[in-house]
Design a protein around this nucleic acid. Sequence first.
DNA 1: GTCTATATCCAGATAGAC
DNA 2: GTCTATCTGGATATAGAC
Lengths: 213, 213
Amino acid sequence: MIKQAEISGWRQARRRSARDAIVEAAWALAREEGLAGLSLRELARQAGISPPTVYAYFDSKNAIYDAMFGAAATQFADRMAEPYQCEDPSELLVAAAMRFAEFCTSDLERYQLLFQRCVPGFEPSPQSYAPALRALAGARDVLALNGITDTRHVNLWTALITGLVSQQVANDPHGDRWTGLIEESVAMFLTHCQRAEGRRPVPAALPPEGALS
Amino acid sequence: MIKQAEISGWRQARRRSARDAIVEAAWALAREEGLAGLSLRELARQAGISPPTVYAYFDSKNAIYDAMFGAAATQFADRMAEPYQCEDPSELLVAAAMRFAEFCTSDLERYQLLFQRCVPGFEPSPQSYAPALRALAGARDVLALNGITDTRHVNLWTALITGLVSQQVANDPHGDRWTGLIEESVAMFLTHCQRAEGRRPVPAALPPEGALS
DNA sequence: GTCTATATCCAGATAGAC
DNA sequence: GTCTATCTGGATATAGAC
Protein backbone atom coordinates (compact mmCIF):
# COMPACT_ATOMS: atom_id res chain seq x y z
CA MET A 1 0.00 0.00 0.00
CA ILE A 2 1.14 3.47 -0.77
CA LYS A 3 1.31 5.98 1.99
CA GLN A 4 0.17 9.55 1.63
CA ALA A 5 3.63 10.84 2.49
CA GLU A 6 5.12 8.93 -0.42
CA ILE A 7 2.66 10.40 -2.87
CA SER A 8 3.49 13.80 -1.55
CA GLY A 9 7.16 12.99 -2.02
CA TRP A 10 6.57 12.01 -5.62
CA ARG A 11 4.67 15.15 -6.26
CA GLN A 12 7.44 17.27 -4.84
CA ALA A 13 10.05 15.43 -6.84
CA ARG A 14 8.02 15.77 -10.04
CA ARG A 15 7.50 19.42 -9.36
CA ARG A 16 11.16 19.97 -8.69
CA SER A 17 12.23 18.20 -11.83
CA ALA A 18 9.73 20.20 -13.87
CA ARG A 19 11.16 23.36 -12.38
CA ASP A 20 14.67 22.17 -13.18
CA ALA A 21 13.65 21.50 -16.76
CA ILE A 22 12.37 25.04 -17.13
CA VAL A 23 15.54 26.46 -15.63
CA GLU A 24 17.58 24.32 -17.97
CA ALA A 25 15.61 25.61 -20.95
CA ALA A 26 16.03 29.15 -19.67
CA TRP A 27 19.79 28.74 -19.60
CA ALA A 28 19.83 27.30 -23.08
CA LEU A 29 17.79 30.21 -24.32
CA ALA A 30 19.89 32.79 -22.50
CA ARG A 31 23.03 31.41 -24.12
CA GLU A 32 21.44 31.86 -27.54
CA GLU A 33 19.70 35.19 -27.15
CA GLY A 34 21.58 36.80 -24.33
CA LEU A 35 20.48 37.20 -20.74
CA ALA A 36 18.41 40.31 -21.29
CA GLY A 37 16.63 38.81 -24.27
CA LEU A 38 15.01 36.07 -22.25
CA SER A 39 11.28 36.10 -23.03
CA LEU A 40 8.71 33.96 -21.29
CA ARG A 41 7.01 33.12 -24.60
CA GLU A 42 10.19 31.73 -26.10
CA LEU A 43 11.08 30.03 -22.86
CA ALA A 44 7.71 28.28 -22.72
CA ARG A 45 8.02 27.29 -26.37
CA GLN A 46 11.43 25.75 -25.84
CA ALA A 47 10.32 24.02 -22.68
CA GLY A 48 7.32 22.54 -24.48
CA ILE A 49 4.68 24.23 -22.38
CA SER A 50 2.42 27.23 -22.75
CA PRO A 51 3.43 30.62 -21.37
CA PRO A 52 0.96 30.70 -18.49
CA THR A 53 2.12 27.31 -17.31
CA VAL A 54 5.44 28.88 -16.44
CA TYR A 55 3.56 30.73 -13.73
CA ALA A 56 2.54 27.43 -12.18
CA TYR A 57 6.21 27.02 -11.23
CA PHE A 58 7.56 30.54 -10.88
CA ASP A 59 5.90 33.63 -9.49
CA SER A 60 7.58 36.02 -11.87
CA LYS A 61 10.32 36.39 -14.40
CA ASN A 62 12.72 37.44 -11.70
CA ALA A 63 11.98 34.21 -9.88
CA ILE A 64 13.28 32.43 -12.96
CA TYR A 65 16.41 34.55 -12.98
CA ASP A 66 16.80 33.71 -9.32
CA ALA A 67 16.58 29.98 -10.00
CA MET A 68 19.07 30.40 -12.84
CA PHE A 69 21.37 32.26 -10.48
CA GLY A 70 21.03 29.54 -7.87
CA ALA A 71 21.89 26.82 -10.36
CA ALA A 72 24.92 28.75 -11.60
CA ALA A 73 26.10 29.54 -8.08
CA THR A 74 25.88 25.86 -7.16
CA GLN A 75 27.91 24.92 -10.22
CA PHE A 76 30.42 27.55 -9.20
CA ALA A 77 30.80 26.38 -5.63
CA ASP A 78 30.97 22.73 -6.67
CA ARG A 79 33.58 23.38 -9.32
CA MET A 80 35.78 25.43 -7.04
CA ALA A 81 35.54 22.79 -4.30
CA GLU A 82 36.68 19.89 -6.47
CA PRO A 83 40.00 18.43 -5.34
CA TYR A 84 43.22 19.99 -6.56
CA GLN A 85 46.22 18.04 -7.76
CA CYS A 86 48.84 20.22 -6.18
CA GLU A 87 49.83 20.58 -2.56
CA ASP A 88 52.12 23.54 -2.40
CA PRO A 89 50.05 26.48 -1.09
CA SER A 90 51.17 28.91 -3.73
CA GLU A 91 50.52 26.40 -6.50
CA LEU A 92 47.11 25.87 -4.98
CA LEU A 93 46.43 29.57 -5.20
CA VAL A 94 47.42 29.63 -8.87
CA ALA A 95 45.33 26.58 -9.59
CA ALA A 96 42.28 28.08 -7.89
CA ALA A 97 42.64 31.32 -9.82
CA MET A 98 42.99 29.45 -13.09
CA ARG A 99 40.00 27.31 -12.30
CA PHE A 100 38.00 30.42 -11.56
CA ALA A 101 39.06 31.99 -14.84
CA GLU A 102 38.24 28.84 -16.77
CA PHE A 103 34.85 28.64 -15.11
CA CYS A 104 34.09 32.23 -16.08
CA THR A 105 35.34 32.19 -19.66
CA SER A 106 33.72 28.87 -20.50
CA ASP A 107 30.20 30.30 -20.21
CA LEU A 108 29.96 34.03 -20.67
CA GLU A 109 26.24 34.33 -19.95
CA ARG A 110 26.68 32.45 -16.72
CA TYR A 111 29.55 34.76 -15.83
CA GLN A 112 27.40 37.79 -16.58
CA LEU A 113 24.54 36.71 -14.38
CA LEU A 114 26.75 35.55 -11.51
CA PHE A 115 29.34 38.30 -11.41
CA GLN A 116 28.34 41.14 -13.65
CA ARG A 117 24.80 41.74 -12.33
CA CYS A 118 23.45 43.57 -15.30
CA VAL A 119 19.91 42.19 -15.56
CA PRO A 120 17.74 45.29 -15.03
CA GLY A 121 15.60 44.75 -11.94
CA PHE A 122 17.09 41.53 -10.66
CA GLU A 123 18.98 40.79 -7.48
CA PRO A 124 19.56 37.27 -6.25
CA SER A 125 17.82 36.04 -3.12
CA PRO A 126 19.93 35.03 -0.12
CA GLN A 127 19.19 31.35 -0.77
CA SER A 128 20.44 31.56 -4.33
CA TYR A 129 23.46 33.53 -3.25
CA ALA A 130 24.46 31.17 -0.46
CA PRO A 131 26.59 28.79 -2.59
CA ALA A 132 28.66 31.72 -3.81
CA LEU A 133 29.50 32.52 -0.21
CA ARG A 134 30.71 28.94 0.20
CA ALA A 135 33.10 29.45 -2.67
CA LEU A 136 34.33 32.73 -1.24
CA ALA A 137 35.01 31.00 2.04
CA GLY A 138 37.07 28.47 0.13
CA ALA A 139 39.13 31.25 -1.37
CA ARG A 140 39.82 32.63 2.09
CA ASP A 141 41.00 29.23 3.19
CA VAL A 142 43.49 28.97 0.35
CA LEU A 143 44.75 32.46 1.10
CA ALA A 144 45.11 31.53 4.76
CA LEU A 145 47.20 28.53 3.74
CA ASN A 146 49.56 31.07 2.21
CA GLY A 147 49.66 33.06 5.41
CA ILE A 148 47.36 35.75 4.10
CA THR A 149 44.58 36.72 6.46
CA ASP A 150 44.56 40.51 6.40
CA THR A 151 41.15 41.68 5.14
CA ARG A 152 42.82 44.27 2.95
CA HIS A 153 44.79 41.56 1.22
CA VAL A 154 41.73 39.38 0.77
CA ASN A 155 40.01 42.31 -0.89
CA LEU A 156 43.06 42.92 -3.03
CA TRP A 157 42.97 39.28 -4.10
CA THR A 158 39.36 39.44 -5.26
CA ALA A 159 40.02 42.68 -7.11
CA LEU A 160 43.09 41.32 -8.84
CA ILE A 161 41.56 38.06 -10.00
CA THR A 162 38.18 39.45 -10.99
CA GLY A 163 39.98 42.28 -12.74
CA LEU A 164 41.97 39.86 -14.87
CA VAL A 165 38.90 37.83 -15.68
CA SER A 166 36.64 40.76 -16.46
CA GLN A 167 39.21 42.28 -18.82
CA GLN A 168 39.57 38.90 -20.45
CA VAL A 169 35.85 38.43 -20.91
CA ALA A 170 35.22 41.96 -22.13
CA ASN A 171 38.13 42.47 -24.49
CA ASP A 172 39.40 39.10 -25.62
CA PRO A 173 36.69 36.54 -24.83
CA HIS A 174 38.30 33.63 -26.61
CA GLY A 175 41.95 34.39 -26.05
CA ASP A 176 44.28 34.49 -23.06
CA ARG A 177 45.65 38.01 -23.05
CA TRP A 178 44.75 38.42 -19.37
CA THR A 179 44.28 34.90 -18.09
CA GLY A 180 47.82 34.26 -19.31
CA LEU A 181 48.94 36.72 -16.63
CA ILE A 182 47.54 34.74 -13.73
CA GLU A 183 50.71 32.97 -12.72
CA GLU A 184 52.74 36.16 -12.78
CA SER A 185 49.99 38.04 -10.96
CA VAL A 186 49.80 35.50 -8.18
CA ALA A 187 53.56 35.65 -7.76
CA MET A 188 53.40 39.42 -7.52
CA PHE A 189 50.55 39.24 -5.03
CA LEU A 190 52.18 36.61 -2.84
CA THR A 191 55.52 38.38 -2.75
CA HIS A 192 53.85 41.58 -1.71
CA CYS A 193 51.45 40.17 0.89
CA GLN A 194 53.82 37.70 2.50
CA ARG A 195 56.36 40.46 2.87
CA ALA A 196 53.72 42.73 4.38
CA GLU A 197 52.27 40.09 6.68
CA GLY A 198 55.74 39.08 7.82
CA ARG A 199 55.78 35.59 6.31
CA ARG A 200 53.58 34.41 9.10
CA PRO A 201 53.50 30.67 9.55
CA VAL A 202 50.40 28.93 8.32
CA PRO A 203 48.01 28.63 11.27
CA ALA A 204 47.56 25.08 12.47
CA ALA A 205 43.79 25.23 12.20
CA LEU A 206 41.95 27.13 9.51
CA PRO A 207 40.22 30.26 10.76
CA PRO A 208 36.49 30.02 11.49
CA GLU A 209 34.14 30.83 8.65
CA GLY A 210 32.58 33.96 10.06
CA ALA A 211 32.13 37.35 8.43
CA LEU A 212 32.47 36.31 4.85
CA SER A 213 31.83 39.60 3.18
CA MET B 1 25.01 91.12 -45.87
CA ILE B 2 24.74 87.58 -44.61
CA LYS B 3 26.44 84.91 -46.57
CA GLN B 4 24.88 81.53 -47.24
CA ALA B 5 27.73 79.74 -45.52
CA GLU B 6 27.04 81.65 -42.30
CA ILE B 7 23.41 80.64 -42.29
CA SER B 8 24.44 77.10 -42.83
CA GLY B 9 26.87 77.51 -39.92
CA TRP B 10 24.09 78.77 -37.70
CA ARG B 11 21.90 75.88 -38.66
CA GLN B 12 24.58 73.39 -37.85
CA ALA B 13 25.31 75.03 -34.53
CA ARG B 14 21.62 75.11 -33.63
CA ARG B 15 21.24 71.51 -34.60
CA ARG B 16 24.27 70.48 -32.59
CA SER B 17 23.10 72.30 -29.50
CA ALA B 18 19.66 70.74 -29.82
CA ARG B 19 21.30 67.34 -30.03
CA ASP B 20 23.42 68.17 -27.01
CA ALA B 21 20.33 69.18 -25.08
CA ILE B 22 18.72 65.82 -25.82
CA VAL B 23 21.84 63.94 -24.79
CA GLU B 24 21.96 65.97 -21.60
CA ALA B 25 18.35 65.10 -20.84
CA ALA B 26 19.08 61.46 -21.62
CA TRP B 27 21.89 61.43 -19.08
CA ALA B 28 19.71 63.06 -16.46
CA LEU B 29 17.03 60.47 -17.07
CA ALA B 30 19.48 57.57 -17.06
CA ARG B 31 20.79 58.67 -13.67
CA GLU B 32 17.25 58.59 -12.31
CA GLU B 33 15.86 55.47 -13.93
CA GLY B 34 18.93 53.49 -14.75
CA LEU B 35 20.56 53.04 -18.12
CA ALA B 36 18.31 50.24 -19.26
CA GLY B 37 15.19 52.12 -18.23
CA LEU B 38 15.73 54.90 -20.71
CA SER B 39 12.55 55.32 -22.74
CA LEU B 40 12.16 57.64 -25.68
CA ARG B 41 8.79 58.87 -24.46
CA GLU B 42 10.17 59.93 -21.10
CA LEU B 43 13.24 61.34 -22.73
CA ALA B 44 11.13 63.46 -25.07
CA ARG B 45 8.99 64.62 -22.19
CA GLN B 46 12.00 65.72 -20.15
CA ALA B 47 13.57 67.38 -23.15
CA GLY B 48 10.37 69.29 -23.81
CA ILE B 49 9.71 67.83 -27.25
CA SER B 50 7.45 65.16 -28.65
CA PRO B 51 8.68 61.60 -29.10
CA PRO B 52 8.86 61.66 -32.92
CA THR B 53 10.97 64.81 -32.82
CA VAL B 54 13.73 62.78 -31.23
CA TYR B 55 14.00 61.01 -34.55
CA ALA B 56 14.76 64.30 -36.26
CA TYR B 57 18.07 64.22 -34.40
CA PHE B 58 18.82 60.55 -33.86
CA ASP B 59 18.17 57.61 -36.13
CA SER B 60 17.45 55.17 -33.34
CA LYS B 61 17.65 54.62 -29.64
CA ASN B 62 21.10 53.15 -29.98
CA ALA B 63 22.23 56.33 -31.71
CA ILE B 64 21.27 58.14 -28.51
CA TYR B 65 23.26 55.69 -26.43
CA ASP B 66 26.15 56.26 -28.78
CA ALA B 67 25.99 60.01 -28.31
CA MET B 68 25.78 59.49 -24.55
CA PHE B 69 28.83 57.25 -24.73
CA GLY B 70 30.69 59.83 -26.78
CA ALA B 71 29.95 62.58 -24.27
CA ALA B 72 31.04 60.40 -21.37
CA ALA B 73 34.20 59.27 -23.15
CA THR B 74 35.12 62.89 -23.81
CA GLN B 75 34.60 63.76 -20.16
CA PHE B 76 36.78 60.82 -19.27
CA ALA B 77 39.65 61.73 -21.56
CA ASP B 78 39.49 65.39 -20.55
CA ARG B 79 39.48 64.59 -16.85
CA MET B 80 42.38 62.18 -17.09
CA ALA B 81 44.40 64.67 -19.13
CA GLU B 82 44.09 67.53 -16.64
CA PRO B 83 47.43 68.53 -15.14
CA TYR B 84 48.72 66.67 -12.10
CA GLN B 85 50.29 68.31 -9.09
CA CYS B 86 53.00 65.74 -8.52
CA GLU B 87 56.14 65.09 -10.46
CA ASP B 88 57.54 61.85 -9.15
CA PRO B 89 56.59 59.13 -11.67
CA SER B 90 55.28 56.71 -9.09
CA GLU B 91 53.24 59.42 -7.39
CA LEU B 92 51.90 60.29 -10.81
CA LEU B 93 50.78 56.72 -11.29
CA VAL B 94 48.97 56.72 -7.95
CA ALA B 95 47.36 60.05 -8.74
CA ALA B 96 46.16 58.83 -12.12
CA ALA B 97 44.69 55.67 -10.61
CA MET B 98 42.93 57.66 -7.90
CA ARG B 99 41.60 60.11 -10.44
CA PHE B 100 40.27 57.22 -12.48
CA ALA B 101 38.60 55.70 -9.43
CA GLU B 102 37.08 59.03 -8.47
CA PHE B 103 35.79 59.52 -11.99
CA CYS B 104 34.15 56.11 -11.95
CA THR B 105 32.60 56.19 -8.50
CA SER B 106 31.27 59.71 -8.86
CA ASP B 107 28.78 58.69 -11.54
CA LEU B 108 27.79 55.04 -11.53
CA GLU B 109 25.59 55.16 -14.61
CA ARG B 110 28.35 56.79 -16.58
CA TYR B 111 30.74 54.11 -15.36
CA GLN B 112 28.31 51.40 -16.40
CA LEU B 113 27.90 52.69 -19.93
CA LEU B 114 31.59 53.42 -20.45
CA PHE B 115 33.18 50.39 -18.86
CA GLN B 116 30.59 47.79 -18.06
CA ARG B 117 28.88 47.59 -21.44
CA CYS B 118 25.65 46.06 -20.31
CA VAL B 119 23.10 47.84 -22.50
CA PRO B 120 21.52 45.01 -24.50
CA GLY B 121 22.17 45.60 -28.19
CA PHE B 122 24.51 48.55 -27.95
CA GLU B 123 28.14 48.89 -28.93
CA PRO B 124 29.82 52.26 -29.27
CA SER B 125 30.87 53.50 -32.70
CA PRO B 126 34.57 54.07 -33.37
CA GLN B 127 34.02 57.86 -33.27
CA SER B 128 32.45 57.71 -29.83
CA TYR B 129 35.13 55.35 -28.62
CA ALA B 130 38.04 57.43 -29.86
CA PRO B 131 38.40 59.66 -26.77
CA ALA B 132 38.70 56.59 -24.58
CA LEU B 133 41.69 55.52 -26.65
CA ARG B 134 43.25 58.90 -26.00
CA ALA B 135 42.94 58.28 -22.28
CA LEU B 136 44.41 54.82 -22.61
CA ALA B 137 47.38 56.28 -24.45
CA GLY B 138 47.84 58.66 -21.54
CA ALA B 139 47.96 55.74 -19.16
CA ARG B 140 50.65 54.11 -21.26
CA ASP B 141 52.66 57.28 -21.09
CA VAL B 142 52.54 57.39 -17.32
CA LEU B 143 53.53 53.73 -17.14
CA ALA B 144 56.42 54.43 -19.52
CA LEU B 145 57.59 57.21 -17.21
CA ASN B 146 57.93 54.47 -14.61
CA GLY B 147 59.96 52.32 -16.96
CA ILE B 148 57.06 50.00 -17.70
CA THR B 149 56.55 49.29 -21.38
CA ASP B 150 56.01 45.53 -21.54
CA THR B 151 52.57 44.87 -23.00
CA ARG B 152 51.94 42.20 -20.39
CA HIS B 153 52.50 44.72 -17.65
CA VAL B 154 50.28 47.28 -19.30
CA ASN B 155 47.53 44.68 -19.41
CA LEU B 156 48.19 43.79 -15.80
CA TRP B 157 47.86 47.46 -14.90
CA THR B 158 44.45 47.81 -16.54
CA ALA B 159 43.25 44.61 -14.89
CA LEU B 160 44.46 45.67 -11.46
CA ILE B 161 42.96 49.15 -11.52
CA THR B 162 39.67 48.23 -13.17
CA GLY B 163 39.42 45.29 -10.80
CA LEU B 164 39.71 47.54 -7.77
CA VAL B 165 37.20 49.98 -9.18
CA SER B 166 34.68 47.39 -10.28
CA GLN B 167 34.72 45.69 -6.88
CA GLN B 168 34.31 49.09 -5.29
CA VAL B 169 31.36 50.03 -7.47
CA ALA B 170 29.64 46.67 -7.19
CA ASN B 171 30.06 45.92 -3.49
CA ASP B 172 30.62 49.18 -1.65
CA PRO B 173 29.51 51.98 -3.97
CA HIS B 174 29.84 54.80 -1.45
CA GLY B 175 32.75 53.56 0.62
CA ASP B 176 36.46 53.01 0.02
CA ARG B 177 37.01 49.36 0.78
CA TRP B 178 38.83 48.85 -2.52
CA THR B 179 39.79 52.36 -3.61
CA GLY B 180 41.59 52.61 -0.29
CA LEU B 181 43.91 49.91 -1.58
CA ILE B 182 45.12 51.90 -4.55
CA GLU B 183 48.31 53.21 -3.04
CA GLU B 184 49.34 49.80 -1.77
CA SER B 185 48.39 48.18 -5.06
CA VAL B 186 50.45 50.58 -7.09
CA ALA B 187 53.44 49.95 -4.84
CA MET B 188 53.01 46.21 -5.31
CA PHE B 189 52.67 46.64 -9.05
CA LEU B 190 55.68 48.92 -9.41
CA THR B 191 57.94 46.75 -7.29
CA HIS B 192 57.04 43.74 -9.34
CA CYS B 193 57.25 45.30 -12.80
CA GLN B 194 60.36 47.36 -12.23
CA ARG B 195 62.11 44.29 -10.92
CA ALA B 196 60.94 42.29 -13.93
CA GLU B 197 61.80 44.96 -16.45
CA GLY B 198 65.20 45.46 -14.86
CA ARG B 199 64.66 48.98 -13.55
CA ARG B 200 65.12 50.30 -17.03
CA PRO B 201 65.82 54.00 -17.17
CA VAL B 202 62.95 56.14 -18.33
CA PRO B 203 63.30 56.59 -22.09
CA ALA B 204 64.23 60.11 -23.09
CA ALA B 205 61.35 60.42 -25.52
CA LEU B 206 57.96 58.86 -24.93
CA PRO B 207 57.20 55.89 -27.13
CA PRO B 208 55.10 56.52 -30.23
CA GLU B 209 51.37 56.16 -29.87
CA GLY B 210 50.82 53.17 -32.09
CA ALA B 211 48.97 49.94 -31.39
CA LEU B 212 46.92 51.08 -28.45
CA SER B 213 44.96 47.94 -27.94
C1' DG C 1 -1.52 21.61 -13.66
C1' DT C 2 -2.31 22.78 -18.16
C1' DC C 3 -4.45 24.81 -21.63
C1' DT C 4 -6.76 28.81 -24.78
C1' DA C 5 -7.78 33.31 -24.83
C1' DT C 6 -7.04 37.66 -23.37
C1' DA C 7 -6.05 41.77 -20.46
C1' DT C 8 -3.02 45.45 -19.89
C1' DC C 9 0.62 47.99 -20.80
C1' DC C 10 4.54 50.06 -23.02
C1' DA C 11 8.14 49.94 -26.17
C1' DG C 12 10.43 51.82 -30.67
C1' DA C 13 9.35 53.66 -34.80
C1' DT C 14 6.50 55.81 -38.75
C1' DA C 15 2.81 58.67 -41.56
C1' DG C 16 1.50 62.72 -42.92
C1' DA C 17 -0.41 67.42 -41.91
C1' DC C 18 1.40 71.93 -40.97
C1' DG D 1 11.45 70.48 -37.68
C1' DT D 2 7.59 69.71 -35.09
C1' DC D 3 3.43 68.07 -34.11
C1' DT D 4 -0.87 64.52 -33.44
C1' DA D 5 -2.17 60.15 -34.29
C1' DT D 6 -1.06 55.64 -35.12
C1' DC D 7 1.31 51.29 -36.46
C1' DT D 8 3.35 47.08 -34.99
C1' DG D 9 4.93 44.14 -31.96
C1' DG D 10 6.68 42.88 -27.71
C1' DA D 11 6.36 42.17 -22.84
C1' DT D 12 4.37 40.19 -18.12
C1' DA D 13 0.61 38.49 -16.15
C1' DT D 14 -4.32 36.77 -15.39
C1' DA D 15 -9.19 34.48 -16.13
C1' DG D 16 -11.45 30.63 -16.45
C1' DA D 17 -12.54 26.13 -18.78
C1' DC D 18 -11.03 21.38 -18.46
